[in-house]
Every structure is written in structure tokens, then in C-alpha cells.
Design a protein around this nucleic acid. Structure first.
Length: 464
RNA sequence: GUCCCCAUCGUCUAGAGGCCUAGGACACCUCCCUUUCACGGAGGCGACCGGGGUUCGAAUCCCCGUGGGGACGCCA
């Protein structure tokens, strides 16, 4: 069977982490089976859909590298098709007109809630053999409802949750076209999944409840029923549900915050899915391994610490060229202008091992390009009166050496020997003078990259 | 309220009746490396929600309970 999956976001906001994982799994499943991955924009809610949101979703997909074989399709451009099918259903009796007003429906719902029963449409306009329907009221545009089977059960073997059965008696006749004639979500999904020949519907488990209705409609249309895989939700770092109000952020924000897409992808892949003990793998590997059998049925809590760890890994293994580009961009955002020089490259090479974030990496090496403002506590602690003569001697010595890491290191050794002090007595003040802080890689390497002129200038600023 | 889903270390997870004295990873702690901080290396801490079954044997299967979550729109 040809595997065809789809990602079908509604453009009412950015692509968040949960949507990204859903897209990732659908994408990977298609890749794994040499199938097609389709992007479909579900924009039938005209009031809430925006072109900006469409763009945000496209941007997010692109940043993550989730390419699609077909689409993006826009449901608003498929209106004619939906309406044709609605007419057919009306004609063959699988759908009918309902003249209930919203007010009537609200009253019904409220009454049912009070009685402690599941709120649902009571079928007052549903045609039935031997049943007399009310007379359609004047001037009320009807909605179209799907005539859901009233008996029996709908069941499917969910690829992540196992068999799920719902009694048709639990379902009501859902509206498939609004009073203004526009089709609703559940109906459009059905038509699209059918016509786009989707073989596997991989989506969030907030859609579990829609599935039986969709299956019933698919059956009424004589369509094949796709396989369903419902993914559990992703909770925030605090275990709370993610929402626009609480913690849900665009995947693009991870870019802004200094994460590499490789890290986000790897992290997301392991959130709710596993392949034995494998933790670190690229998307090519993931696409070879990915299966629906190893998806967890329970919700997963997001863990930024682990994402950071993966980000550190991908910063270490990232091509140097990409790191240079990223760092220049991020330095610029801090108002530090650097060019792709060998000095920048050397600085990155020296610091990339210790960074778990691109913004941090930029921050760490900014002092190479802009004189640092030293931390007062570090200055007090390390640049003591006793340190100054040592530093003076060091300046004198280092002014005359060949400019190499080895020579600088030897000079440092000579000075500590001559002054009979431990190495840190020289290294620490030097570190503070050169970098502005007490933490850095080997200071001889830092000094070498900084260059003799700038290094001496920074030291002398403390000596005068 | 009604229906549906879920339940292993703090977190992500391995686990398909004996391989489990429950494995890995993040975090945390200790030690090593060391020129500070990281990185890296070696250890450590740490979990099967509760109760009943089924079975020679259950983290794994069944039931009940409890706790979480989701859905009940002319939203998607």
C-alpha cells in the first residue's frame, strides 16, 4: 500500500512544539515508507485564520527542514468540491437540513448539561421513516447535518492507543455545513483525507473524539478508512498543559533563543517515541528507524535541560561554516560586528565545545571584538596589588616573543617561575584583563587569538 | 455531568509473563582531568500509583479504585 500522510494545521497561530512533533512524525513515517507527505492548511475558520499564521507555519516547517511532497493545499480553495459532495449527501439521504437556531441549540445544551447527560443534538429535524418533520420556519437558513448511524459501534485500531470503540448512540448528527453554506472542519477533513488518499492519519489525540464521526462519514461516502495514529500531547516544562496563554511558543522562537534545528528535531523525535537506548541521531537515521509501534500512549513533559544537552551536542558537531554564519548573525543582534575572519573562526573553534546555545556562544566570544567590561568581583579578587608587578613583567616578556600559543605558554611558565608563584596567580588576572571574567578556555589560547596588540592594550589599561 | 484516553526514577523512556537484583538518557551528587569555567572520563542517587485476581511465575494480562488528561461548538 502506498503510504500517504499529511500535516493539517489550522492557520490561527504559529507552529508550536506539539504541531511540530506531529508534523515530524507524519513526515518521518512517509519517508520511512517511501510515501508522500502532504501539507494541508485548514483555513475554513475565516474569522480566525490569517495569512501571517500561514506564513509562520511555512517558516517553521522550513526551519525544521520538514519538506512536503504535495501542497500546501488550502481548504478555502476547495469550497466547490465540498459543496458538491454536500449536495450529493443531501440527495442520497446521508445528510439533511436542520432549521434549529443557535439559540434553540444553546437552550438544549444547557438543559442537557443540567440533567447530567452528554450534550448533543436531539435529532428533531432528522428524517426518519414514519416520522413527521416540523414545518420549516420562514427566513431561517438551515444548516446541513450528517445523518449519523443511531445504532451499533464505530471502532478502529488506533496505531498508538490500540482498539477504540465508540457507541453510535454517543454520537449526534454533526453539522457539516453552516447556515451560510460553508462546510465545517470535520467534513472537510473527511473529504480531503479521502480525495488526497491519505493512508495514515497521524495527529494529536485531541482528535480521538472526532475520529468515529469521521469514520462514519467516510463510510457514508463509500471511502476507504485510513489508519489512525493519535499522538499524546506535550506538556510544558512544569507539567502543565501548553496553551497560548501558558508556555506555548513558536518553533521559530527556538531559533531566536539559540537552538539548532537539528537539536530541536532530535529532541522532539525522542519525545513520545523511542528506539531502544538511542538518544542522539540525525533525521536520516530517524527516518530509517521511525515506526508507530514505539510511540508512547501517554503525555510527555517537555524538558528544556535535555534539549540544551542535545543542542550542545549539535553545536559541537555542526559544520564550522554554519557556526560562523550563525554567530555573526547573533553577534550582530547584540550590536557586535564581526566578519568571517580567521580570528572569528578560531574563537568559535575554541568556544564551541563549551557552548550549549548559539546565543551563548556569541556572547562568550563577543569580548574578542569589543573590549569587555570587567566583572567587579573578579577584578577585586584577581587583580590584586601583588598581581600588578607580575603582569608588568609578563607584558615585557610577551612583547618580544614569537606570537604563538606555545610561546605565550612558555612565557607564562617563565614568569611564574621567576616570581615563584603558582600558575593561577598569573593566569587569573590575565583572564580577567583579557576577557573581563574569571572563566574562559586556556588563557594562552585566548590571548593568541586576541592578538598581541589588543592583548597588550587590555593589560596595560590595568597597569597605568 | 457524560463519553474517551493515560499511568515505570524529578524528566524523557527501555520493557510484548521468567532474560528485571527493572536498563539507557537528561538533571543532580562524588571523584578524575585541569590554568578558572566548561567539555570529557569513572562512579553514585533514583521508579514499576493502590488493591484484588489469572499464573508455577506479573512492571508486563484482567477487574476495581485513585490520580491525571482530552472531548462534548454553525472552532479547528
Amino acid at each position: 500500500m502506498q503510504v500517504r500522510t499529511r500535516f493539517a494545521p489550522s492557520p490561527t497561530g504559529f507552529l508550536h512544539i506539539g504541531g511540530a512533533r506531529t508534523a515530524l512524525f507524519s513526515w518521518a513515517y512517509a519517508k520511512r515508507h517511501q510515501g508522500q507527505f502532504i501539507l494541508r492548511i485548514e483555513d475554513t475558520d475565516v474569522a480566525r485564520s490569517t495569512p501571517e499564521a500561514v506564513q509562520a507555519i511555512l517558516d517553521g516547517m522550513e526551519w525544521l527542514g520538514l519538506d512536503y511532497d504535495e501542497g500546501p493545499f488550502y481548504q478555502m480553495q476547495r469550497m466547490a468540491q465540498y459543496k458538491t459532495i454536500i449536495q450529493q449527501m443531501l440527495a442520497d439521504g446521508s445528510a439533511y437540513l436542520c432549521y434549529c437556531s443557535k439559540e434553540e441549540l444553546d437552550a438544549l445544551r444547557e438543559q442537557q448539561m443540567q440533567q447530567g447527560v452528554k450534550p448533543r443534538y436531539d435529532g428533531r429535524w432528522r428524517p426518519e421513516d414514519g416520522k413527521d418533520l416540523p414545518v420549516p420556519p420562514q427566513g431561517v437558513p438551515p444548516v446541513v447535518r450528517f445523518k449519523n448511524p443511531s445504532t451499533g459501534v464505530v471502532a478502529w485500531d488506533d496505531l498508538v492507543k490500540g482498539r477504540i470503540e465508540i457507541a453510535n448512540a454517543e454520537l449526534d448528527d454533526l453539522i457539516i455545513a453552516r447556515a451560510d453554506g460553508t462546510p465545517t472542519y470535520n467534513f472537510c477533513v473527511v473529504v480531503d483525507d479521502w480525495e488526497m488518499q491519505i493512508s495514515h492519519v497521524i495527529r494529536g489525540d485531541d482528535h480521538v473524539n472526532n475520529t468515529p464521526r469521521q469514520i462514519n462519514m467516510l463510510k457514508a461516502l463509500g471511502a476507504n478508512i485510513p489508519q489512525y495514529a493519535h499522538l499524546s500531547m506535550i506538556l510544558g516544562d512544569d507539567g502543565q498543559k501548553l496553551s497560548k496563554r501558558h508556555g506555548a511558543v513558536s518553533v521559530m522562537q527556538y531559533d531566536e533563543e539559540g537552538y539548532l534545528p537539528e537539536a530541536v528535531l532530535n529532541y522532539l523525535a525522542r519525545l513520545g517515541w523511542s528506539h531502544g537506548d538511542e538518544e542522539v541521531f540525525d533525521m536520516q537515521q530517524f527516518c530509517q528507524w521511525f515506526d508507530l509501534d514505539h510511540i508512547t500512549a501517554s503525555a510527555a513533559q517537555f524538558n528544556t535541560e535535555k534539549l540544551n544537552w542535545l543542542n550542545a551536542h549539535y553545536i559541537k558537531t555542526c559544520p564550522q561554516e554554519k557556526l560562523i554564519t550563525e554567530t555573526i548573525k547573533r553577534l550582530k543582534a547584540k550590536g557586535v560586528f564581526a566578519e568571517a575572519t580567521s580570528q572569528l573562526s578560531d574563537a568559535i573553534a575554541l568556544y564551541r565545545e563549551r557552548a550549549n546555545n548559539l546565543n551563548q556562544l556569541a556572547q562568550d566570544i563577543a569580548f574578542f571584538f569589543v573590549a569587555p567590561v570587567a566583572n567587579n568581583m573578579d577584578v577585586e579578587k584577581h587583580i590584586t596589588p601583588e598581581a600588578l608587578p607580575i603582569m608588568s613583567a609578563f607584558v615585557t616578556k610577551v612583547s618580544k616573543i614569537d606570537w604563538s600559543v606555545e610561546a605565550i605558554h612558555m612565557a607564562m611558565n617563565d614568569i611564574v617561575t621567576e616570581h615563584q608563584v603558582k600558575f593561577p596567580k598569573l593566569a587569573m588576572p590575565l583572564r580577567v584583563m583579557l576577557t573581563g571574567g574569571a572563566q574562559s578556555p586556556s588563557i594562552d589560547q585566548v590571548m593568541f587569538i586576541l592578538g598581541r596588540e589588543v592583548a597588550l592594550q587590555r593589560i596595560n589599561a590595568y597597569l597605568s
